[in-house]
Design a protein around this nucleic acid. Structure first.
Length: 730
DNA sequence: GTAGGGTTAG
């Protein structure tokens, strides 16, 4: 509230007649808005001043407000003019241009039709009589997507013309696949490079059979540091630390010294697996090893990102200081952004967020969509929903295509709705029996409902209230914004966005709407989504006791917490997700289940939990389960879901069943005490010796988990007994 | 004539 009122007050003070000329555009759009709230803002400000002042920090409130305004001022940088690139056909080797004839013109369009061009080339004799450098030249001109699309065709044509690819040929193909996220193809290409006879002359072929793969590749097509960098990127995409370790060792054995790129890629691989200690060890090693491998701004950006993932804002600040002061590196836009992100994940670093955002802008970096998204995230974390909404308005009203909110930006907004608001505020409001309790709810809402049918495409349907005081107001707006998105920008509505809304319903304690949204907004998997066609609906039966079909609308509340949303729900029932634009829009994903289960836990709703759990079991049989998540992520979330079920059972005092599930679960995953803390507490409270025994057997003395549920990893490229030796090879 | 970095899941 304090933040929101300050944002308001700031506008009331400086809103009109501001000095910055670029600010005028935004002011115009906000003017009407500001007038409406000006009076109210003054009142709130007076109240706020009377209230206890926040601790006096270096970054004062005034400065924060100035920071906000400064950020809203468009940067003075002019567009960078790059020299016009030469036409693509001029980059092609003469032999290919000649063979293409008139079809060569097809590549000089904005979207070259490479498929057609290559077809034409093949028709006119392919690569017959050409050199491999011609092929490489063609690959360079092609661009990544078309390289991937035509990869097989080109390899076939090379084979036909008896042209052996050289290292660069492989590199260019591997690079394209790595960058477009096709790790398997990268690995396949690397295998063919190793098997390739390369430049080994004919008579040697017999001999070469005796030679090892490594020898062959040395004599044949020798991989370079680039080749390994592409390969390591593939392992990074798969979060395959073991594979990366093997490739790394192989590279060293081939006499190639790892460089800064290789190390950075290895760190990224660890982060993709949430293996933080290993990532930091590699980073430390880079610093110690030599000047040549000392981390640069890119490595620092990655490590700052690691801090964000771990919630280590203090560490991020130290790291940034280390980078600028000790290493004398000038921060880039990416390092600033990563730092801001690492600060945005914690509400106690909100001032720092704005401080560095200001500094970043002073250094001449433009606020792009991603940075603005992160600022919205920071607002959400802090509960400064007003400023989050202003940022969205600014992005929408800027008229600049490159900062118009995208799906992720809106997700940040919905997370802000989800994270904003003292949890008890609404409960107190209702339970306090204040006379205004129910009346104001009906008033504004009736108007909103009437407007409902006519969404304006370019007007985000924010509430007319500048400050959203109650959870009801927050959720009403969140919903309306989602409906607006579904109606006018459906392409932006994805599963993650809907999950964020689900999360908001969960956090603001709306058990009924939460359930309704879970049941109605998401689609069930289609028959074709399953790995193998299911045998008439019994697919989910194997692991699930308690067959039940809880109908969507029947709330089976256990009596806890019905008070807060029972009434508003009735009021707005005609407008429930069932009837609205939010109907069967996006498929569920693993995080849908995670959010839903945590809601069921929160609301003591066991039968809902079983329903979700059964849906999840079905989801495990789909292709999406395997294609959307890496194995490590699947295991982490699967273990988490199992623990969640155990804790829900425990919370509903079904300790026997919870203990039984724990027994099964701990055979499959490494479970720590903290994962099933609720079961432990319940068992202690009820002095359930049997359950306590099971807990002891299953989690033993491992009380805490430091970074991930599931298997933990040693440095995989260290053999069991040779840890000392191999550590020296870094 | 290549490669590594920044926004989402309480």
């Amino acid at each position: 509230m304090s933040c929101q009122s300050r944002a308001l007050a700031s506008h009331a003070r400086h809103g009109r007649g501001t000095r910055a000329s670029g600010f005028l555009g935004m002011i115009k759009r906000l003017e009407a808005h500001v007038q409406l709230i000006e009076k109210r803002a003054a009142d709130i400000e007076a109240q706020g001043a009377a209230r206890k002042r926040l601790p006096d920090l270096e970054m004062t409130e005034e400065l924060q407000d100035q920071a906000y305004e400064a950020l809203m001022t468009p940067g003075s940088k002019t567009a960078v003019f790059l020299p016009q690139p030469e036409t693509v056909s001029k980059m092609l080797p003469a032999s290919i241009v000649e063979r293409l004839g008139s079809a060569a013109a097809l590549v000089d369009t904005s979207t070259p039709l490479w498929g057609t061009v290559i077809g034409q080339l093949e028709f006119n004799g392919g690569f017959q009589g050409m050199e491999i450098v011609d092929v490489n030249c063609l690959l360079v001109s092609m661009g990544l997507e078309s390289r991937v699309e035509n990869s097989l065709k080109l390899q076939e044509m090379m084979e036909k013309a008896k042209l052996e690819p050289d290292t660069l040929t492989y590199d260019l193909l591997m690079m394209a696949h790595a960058q477009l996220g096709c790790p398997e193809e990268v690995k396949t290409l690397f295998e063919s490079l190793k098997k390739s006879k390369g430049l080994v002359p004919g008579p040697c072929t017999d001999l070469s059979i005796i030679l090892t793969d490594t020898m062959l590749s040395i004599e044949g097509v020798p991989p370079t540091i680039f080749t390994y960098a592409h390969l390591l990127k593939a392992f990074s995409l798969q979060a395959d630390i073991e594979g990366a370790g093997k490739a790394f060792t192989e590279m060293r054995e081939a006499g190639i010294r790892p460089n800064i790129v290789v190390y950075t890629t290895l760190i990224k691989t660890c982060l993709n697996r949430r293996e933080f200690p290993t990532a930091w060890r590699i980073f430390d090693l880079m610093k110690l090893k030599s000047k040549a491998t000392a981390p640069d701004t890119r490595t620092f950006a990655l490590m700052l990102h690691a801090c964000a993932m771990e919630g280590e804002s203090e560490k991020a600040l130290n790291l940034f200081k280390d980078m600028t002061d000790r290493m004398r590196l000038k921060p880039t836009k990416e390092t600033y952004h990563a730092l801001i992100h690492a600060l945005a994940v914690r509400k106690d670093y909100y001032q720092e967020v704005w401080r560095y955002a200001t500094e970043m802008q002073k250094e001449g970096f433009k606020m792009d969509r991603r940075v603005l998204g992160t600022l919205i995230q920071a607002c959400g974390k802090r509960g400064d929903l007003t400023r989050a909404r202003m940022l969205i308005r600014h992005m929408l009203g800027s008229g600049k295509e490159d900062i118009v909110p995208d799906s992720t930006t809106y997700q940040c907004l919905f997370r802000a709705y989800a994270n904003t608001g003292g949890k008890k505020k609404c409960v107190e409001f209702v339970e306090g029996g204040s006379p205004e309790t129910s009346a104001p709810y009906v008033g504004p809402d009736t108007r909103l409902v009437k407007q409902e049918e006519s969404f304006k495409e370019d007007a985000i349907p924010f509430s007319q209230n500048t400050i959203l005081n109650t959870r009801l107001e927050i959720m009403r707006e969140a919903r309306r914004v989602m409906e607006w998105l579904c109606t006018v920008k459906p392409h932006l509505v994805d599963t993650q966005l809907m999950n964020a809304l689900l999360d908001a319903y969960c956090n603001h304690y709306y058990p009924f709407k939460f359930k309704v949204l879970y049941y109605t907004a998401f689609t069930d998997p289609k028959e074709s989504d399953y790995l193998e066609p299911t045998t008439s609906g019994t697919g989910a039966g194997n692991l699930t006791p308690e067959p039940n079909g809880v109908p969507a609308a029947d709330t089976i509340d256990t009596g806890k917490g019905t008070g807060t949303d029972a009434e508003p729900d009735k009021n707005t029932h005609p407008n429930s997700p069932d009837q609205s634009a939010l109907r069967r829009i996006v498929p569920r994903n693993l995080y849908t289940f995670q959010t839903a289960l945590s809601g069921a836990y929160k609301h003591y709703d066991l039968s809902f939990a079983w329903d979700i759990y059964n849906d999840r079991i079905k989801y495990l049989l789909t292709k999406q389960y395997y294609s959307l998540y890496r194995e490590a992520e699947r295991r982490r979330l699967d273990a988490k879901a199992e623990c969640m079920m155990i804790n829900i059972l425990a919370r509903c005092e079904m300790l026997g069943e919870a203990a039984a599930r724990l027994k099964t679960t701990c055979k499959k995953y490494k479970i720590y005490e903290s994962d099933i803390a609720i079961l432990h507490i319940k068992a202690l409270q009820l002095d359930d010796k049997q359950t306590l025994k099971v807990i002891k057997e299953c989690v033993g003395t491992t009380r805490y988990r430091d970074y991930a549920v599931g298997a933990r990893h040693k440095l995989p490229w260290k053999g069991e007994g040779e840890a000392e030796d191999s550590s020296r090879t870094w």
